[in-house]
Design a binder for these strands. Structure first.
Lengths: 200, 200
DNA sequence: ATTTTTACTATACAAATGTTCATTTTAATT
DNA sequence: AATTAAAATGAACATTTGTATAGTAAAAAT
């Protein structure tokens, strides 16, 4: 499974890419170290990480032997559990599963995961029963975005509004009333970045 | 002078090429030495020769920094017909043929073609019967340049002078008189950029 | 015939490069 | 606040790698 890169690792990969682009051969460990003003050891660790995560290939003990692995157009993320978009369900019923999502769904870096939707309460937002919602793990979201939040010990998918120390959670379903509560009662766990629907 | 490779140098170049093809990075001097069962010094000399002759580029003191310079030293242009440098001959007797010309004969962009010379009337310009004249297709030339022109429905190679609305076509042969005529009677079809002579 | 170029050997040196150890600092997560 | 992971240091070590010296031998060019 291809894993996500940290910001620094991405920068290192970008440097390697452009170095190869410019020079026609790959940088040495020390070329990388010099560029980022770190020690060879530091650069080495990054290279090992990139190799481990499958972004580059190289031959140990061979100088400048880094080659870029072709970027896959999909990436696999863990399905962490189920989510009832309306009512909310008990927190993470763990599912040992992964789902492939298109790489373009991912912007920048971070930890991504999926939840499987149960019920039709997000139908007005065109999210159906059985859909996988793809979330970027983060604990703050901008006003108006759809986020997975924990409220009253239940995990639920809502449009999120923040004002002062009050939070409004709006379901995408006219039949369900918005929830207004204190910011302390709500914990955001991820921002909605996409959905995957698979028809049988 | 054309920098041609010796057989051994060609083999070394081929090895480098296929090594890069296979591994994605260039061989070290010792990789080459091992492959040909020679010493590093021997391999090094080959690499220096290839570099000097312009077939590869590299950075001194940088390991595995060989890159291939894949610029062809010749290019093929169509032989469009025959030309009688003195009298002119009937326009394009089409010949289905191509000729390789050195890349350095070409400056910038443009449409290049060749004509095969018949007769000795350009002998004073050292253009002989059987030579290929290489032309850049253009419809204006500077004063004094040799150009292929159409005059009286015949194609001919002449030194070209323009003054007012009069044109003077000077053959490079004392026995033939210059032609002075109206600009409207002459059509330039190409500028002479080189000749190729092949001895039997 | 003489000179130059090419193709090599054997050994050695020095710079470049990959790698490791023991720790510390920083940042993110629980 | 405590814990974990990521990022980094600094000095050293071990290969790998490029390069040099000093020469031999054969082929190619003049």
């Amino acid at each position: 499974m291809i894993q996500h890169l940290t910001k620094k690792q991405k920068k290192v990969l970008d440097f390697i890419t452009s170095f190869i682009q410019q020079n026609g051969y790959s940088p040495s460990i020390r070329d990388i170290a010099r560029h980022f003003k770190i020690t060879p050891r530091g650069a080495h660790i990054h290279v090992l990480a990139l190799e481990k995560k499958g972004y580059i290939t190289r031959n140990p003990n061979r100088s400048r032997s880094i080659t870029l692995t072709k970027r896959p157009e999909s990436i696999s993320v863990p399905v962490k559990g189920k989510i009832a978009a309306g009512q909310g369900i008990e927190m993470f019923e763990v599912i040992d599963e992964e789902i492939e999502i298109p790489i373009r769904m991912i912007k920048g870096f971070g930890d991504y995961f999926a939840l499987k939707v149960e019920g039709d309460s997000m139908i007005d937002a065109h999210i159906l029963d059985g859909d996988f919602v793809i979330l970027k793990r983060q604990y703050k979201v901008a006003n108006g975005q759809i986020a997975a939040v924990v409220y009253q010990n239940k995990i639920t998918l809502k449009r999120f509004f923040h004002k002062g120390d009050k939070v409004t959670l709006v379901p995408e379903n006219k039949n369900i009333e918005p929830i207004i509560c204190n910011a302390t009662e709500v914990r955001v766990i991820g921002k909605l970045v996409g959905i995957i629907r698979i028809y049988e």
